[in-house]
């Protein structure tokens, strides 16, 4: 996990990029908990979301789960290849398994998210 990466309690990670955008994915813990992924629905590019709103859904053999926006902003890019290679979420959740890129309305919103240590404490509890 990169040091600057932040986490939502709902298991999404977000990493600010140098171009002002932020990349979003789901943690390895979440991928492991979901097990046997079979389908993913991504949001449309251009969608504006508030922090905590659904940005997509992911289905495993026995469950459908929402993916949530860690911060408010506009979806500017989606990993369109991901739904056809869901195994990438398991093999490289913090790299090639990224889900969307978002243009945050307020980058400081990331300050209120969990850092790596706090997130690991949450999943250990």
């Amino acid at each position: 996990m990169a040091a600057e990466m932040k986490f939502a309690k709902s298991h999404e990670w977000i990493r600010p990029e140098e171009n002002g955008l932020a990349t979003v994915g789901i943690s390895s813990y979440a991928v492991e908990a979901l097990t046997d992924l079979v389908f993913m629905q991504l949001p449309p590019v251009g969608k504006k979301v508030k922090a905590g709103e659904s940005i997509g859904e992911i289905e495993s053999v026995k469950a459908v789960s929402d993916l949530y926006a860690p911060v408010s902003g506009e979806i500017v890019e989606v990993n369109a290849a991901l739904p056809n290679q869901l195994e990438t979420l398991g093999t490289d959740p913090y790299g090639a398994g990224w889900i969307v890129r978002i243009k945050p309305d307020d980058p400081s919103e990331m300050d209120s998210l969990l850092d790596r240590a706090a997130y690991e404490a949450q999943i250990a509890s």
Binding site: G52, K62, V64, S65
Partner: peptide, 8 residues
Amino acid sequence: GSAQRRLG
């Protein structure tokens, strides 16, 4: 058989 929806 059972299946779940995991909400917020």
